[in-house]
């Protein structure tokens, strides 16, 4: 499944990059992400609780930030496993200044397997889009708070 999109964060690219790679900010902003525990440089063990309406479950996995080139780009590699199956995501994230704001583009692929995949790709991508939008809205709020 392809994942791609472009969002604006009301902050400089330096600030936006810092927000999006800070484990504390991520646990506050990413829906369902409960904990990120550092395991090595740029790598974290992640605990997620998915609570999408009827679909509930605890997922464990890892998150890695690779090819980091602050404040321009990095690659985000996520692997998760839980009762409903597995999810792995590999996407590149790019930051470009756009006036006072940072334009953040992401592009990559998500693989989903196990019973969760039987829900159909369209459902999953609908949920993924919704969660991504929530995530970026939360990050934008953090960026505004950080300014004030």
């Amino acid at each position: 499944m392809q994942l791609s999109g472009n969002k604006h964060i009301p902050a400089s690219i330096d600030k936006a990059y810092t927000l999006l790679t800070d484990p504390e900010v991520l646990t506050r902003t990413m829906p369902g992400l409960k904990r990120l525990t550092p395991i090595s440089e740029g790598a974290y063990a992640a605990d997620l609780e998915m609570g999408v309406a009827a679909i509930k479950g605890k997922y464990q996995g890892t998150m890695r930030i690779e090819d980091a080139s602050p404040p321009h780009s990095y690659r985000l590699v996520l692997d998760g496993q839980g009762p409903g199956g597995f999810v792995s995501v590999n996407m590149s994230v790019e930051f470009v200044s756009d006036g006072d704001e940072a334009s953040v583009s992401y592009q990559g692929e998500a693989q989903v397997g196990g019973t969760i995949a039987s829900m159909g790709q369209r459902m999953i991508s609908g949920v993924a889009n919704y969660l991504t939008n929530q995530f970026f809205q939360n990050v934008a709020k953090e960026a505004i708070q950080a300014k004030n």
Partner: peptide, 14 residues
């Protein structure tokens, strides 16, 4: 009719 199938698939674990 929706919840029990999801629970059997362990997608939901209330």
């Amino acid at each position: 009719h929706s919840l029990l199938p999801l629970m059997k698939l362990v997608l939901a674990q209330p």
